[in-house]
């Protein structure tokens, strides 16, 4: 549905998007994840025809975003970073305007507007002036605006910004429910949001793609082997040496824990090995009191930080 190839956008000297390529299949939800200034908004603006690319191509529903911009725009619902609202309009007048400008036929207009308001939970604000709404409601009106013409492709730049926790959950449900019949790209800084809503994630850093994969794959791929945390009462070097001898253990590091003779040891296993029972047997066998033993899973946060931190070896290895 969306094909992006070698997309590059330079603002003068600064390259905001640097040879980005990805594909979004019909009905899929793709998440853009990246630190501030990574180029998420710029990429979305190119896809929606707001900015021309410096080089590379992007196609939406088979139409080139530059040469067939109008065809692309017909098919896209777009929530920009700053919701494009007319402050002096009421919510319903605003949505009516958007429906008109997006070519919704007169006979469907009312139904489409009501549907968009229902989905974003703003029916009770329909007669209010937009300038009187709170931040979160403004965001929801912006979201309704992106849905009002029932577009094939929906592009949402940080859709949950400014919403309260309950609304965040509802909007995530909404986005998930739109998938299948719609193709969606969203950007966010909230990592759990990506693992909760997206089928695939693109991690962008400084205009380049650091990783593209499903949230689940990203976690395991980067995790490599299992990480285990062991706390025991013993001499630090002795414990580390003992565990290092075990088969399937790749790396061991220890540090004092609490100051009453306890040590905490972090064990990294080879990929595909479960070393927990062996560690337990070893420690207990040596007669050291075992206080704690648990697997530590890398969160998307760790992956994100790892990929977007400057001198990360992982970042380049995963991207290739």
């Amino acid at each position: 549905m969306i094909e992006v190839k070698d997309l590059t956008k330079a603002f003068g000297e600064r390259t905001a998007v640097d040879h980005v390529s990805f594909v979004v299949n019909k009905g899929e939800i793709l998440g853009f994840l990246g630190p501030n200034g990574a180029g998420k908004t710029t990429t979305m603006r190119i896809l929606t025809g707001f900015l021309p690319a410096t080089s590379g191509t992007a196609r939406v529903a088979g139409f080139d975003v530059f040469n067939d911009s109008l065809e692309v725009r017909k098919r896209i619902g777009y929530l920009p970073e700053n919701p494009p609202l007319y402050m002096d309009m009421t919510v319903s007048a605003y949505l009516e305007f958007v429906a008109r400008i997006k070519n919704v036929p007169a006979e469907n207009r009312k139904a489409r507007i009501n549907d968009a308001m229902e989905k974003t939970n703003i029916q009770d604000k329909r007669h209010e002036l937009i300038k009187r709404l709170s931040r979160g409601y403004k965001q929801r009106v912006g979201l309704a605006q992106a849905l009002v013409h029932d577009p094939e492709v929906i592009i949402l730049d940080e859709p949950t910004v400014g919403l309260d926790p309950k609304q965040i959950i509802e909007v995530r449900h909404l986005i998930k429910s739109l998938a299948g019949s719609h193709t969606i790209i969203l950007s966010t800084h909230i990592l759990p949001e990506v693992s909760m809503t997206c089928d695939r994630v693109v991690i962008i850093n400084r205009g380049r793609i650091a990783a593209i994969d499903t949230p689940a794959n990203l976690t395991t791929q980067l995790k490599g082997g299992q990480h285990v945390r062991v706390v025991a009462e013993a001499d630090q070097n002795a414990v580390c040496a003992a565990i290092r001898e075990l088969p399937g253990v790749r790396r061991v590091s220890g540090e004092p824990e609490g100051g009453n003779g306890l040590v905490a040891v972090t064990v990294e296993a080879e990929a595909g090995q479960d070393v927990r029972s062996q560690i337990a047997a070893k420690v207990v066998g040596k007669g050291w009191p075992l206080y704690e033993l648990r697997g530590v899973s890398l969160s998307l946060e760790d992956i994100f930080l790892e990929l977007t931190t400057e001198d990360s070896e992982h970042a380049s290895s995963v991207a290739n």
């Binding site: 603006r45 929606t48 025809g49 707001f50 109008l70 725009r73 017909k74 896209i76 777009y78 920009p80 700053n82 919701p83 494009p84 609202l85 007319y86 402050m87 958007v98 400008i101 997006k102 070519n103 605006q145």
Partner: peptide, 14 residues
């Protein structure tokens, strides 16, 4: 200034 130009310019109007 308000950013609504972004709505107009990404809508199917010339």
């Amino acid at each position: 200034r308000r950013g609504t130009m972004e709505l107009l310019m990404t809508s199917p109007v010339t």
